[in-house]
């Protein structure tokens, strides 16, 4: 059974349909990507999945349970890291726990071991404005993880970073995901990033936005450093560009 599933999600805004009949699945341990041009409704779909927006039709199922329109179940992370500038990194990371009523001391004790794992140890008492973009993004990911340790919804998480930091973050993210057994659904408009990170890619396109294609990236093709230059990669890229092109 899929960990997270959407069934026939449709959303309209001011009488215009934005997304229609979206059916996607995220299995345990998978990294699935939603790829589409700007305005295809990717973020709208995320708002529905995280419960911030109620869909006109359809359901969101998390471990088989209907969580449509219920916020506080799955947290998501935006391109902006949204670390609160007036809280230290550790207080930012413990926020999901303290919001649930965990005591400050207890919350800190629980998050501390992860600082090492996420590569941000030593930053606990710093304020966000003292950290670089990559470090802030790691801290924000840790906060997302503290909120829901099974599924991470990431909305263009790395798009604000420079190319080199981004590439480092990709490698880091794939490793950390395996370590903490996190399943990820993420949005991007970066085709290279999608091929590099994903197990599967959903192409979202058209007006109203709907899933136009689903592409599985074979495990033997990915996760080696030369991927970006390999022939497989170009084949995937061609196929994706064609799929996106067809929808426009």
């Amino acid at each position: 059974m899929a960990l997270l599933k959407t069934e026939n999600i449709s959303v309209s805004y001011d009488g215009t349909k934005i997304i229609e009949d979206i059916n996607i699945e995220l299995n345990d341990g998978e990294l699935v990507c939603l790829l589409g041009v700007s305005g295809s409704g990717k973020s709208t779909l995320f708002n529905v999945i995280s419960g911030l927006l109620a869909p006109d039709n359809g359901h969101v199922l998390f471990k088989g349970e209907d969580i449509t329109g219920r916020s506080g179940m799955l947290s998501y992370m935006l391109q902006k890291d949204l670390l609160l500038p007036y809280k230290t990194i550790i207080d930012n990371v413990t926020l999901p726990l303290t919001l649930r009523g965990t005591g400050k001391k207890e919350a800190r004790k629980r998050v501390l071991p992860y600082f090492e794992e996420f590569g941000i140890s030593g930053c606990e008492r710093k304020y966000p404005n003292q950290l670089s973009g990559g470090m802030r993004q790691r801290a924000a990911l840790l906060r997302t993880y503290m909120f829901s340790d099974e599924v991470a919804l990431l909305d263009e998480p790395f798009s604000a970073l420079d190319t080199i930091t981004k590439s480092n973050m990709h490698t880091w993210y794939i490793n950390i995901m395996k370590q903490i057994r996190l399943s990820t659904l993420f949005i991007t408009h970066d085709i290279d990033e999608a091929i590099l990170l994903s197990d599967r890619i959903y192409i979202l396109g058209g007006r109203p936005g709907h899933i136009t294609d689903e592409i599985r990236i074979a495990p033997e093709d990915v996760r080696h450093t030369d991927l970006l230059l390999s022939e497989h990669f170009l084949e995937y890229k061609k196929r994706i560009i064609k799929a996106i092109g067809d929808t426009c």
Binding site: G51, L52, L84, P96
Partner: peptide, 19 residues
Amino acid sequence: DALKLLKSMGAGPVKRFIH
């Protein structure tokens, strides 16, 4: 966006106000 984030974490109006 920060308010939205806290809402997605299940924080009510009072907690959103405080944090």
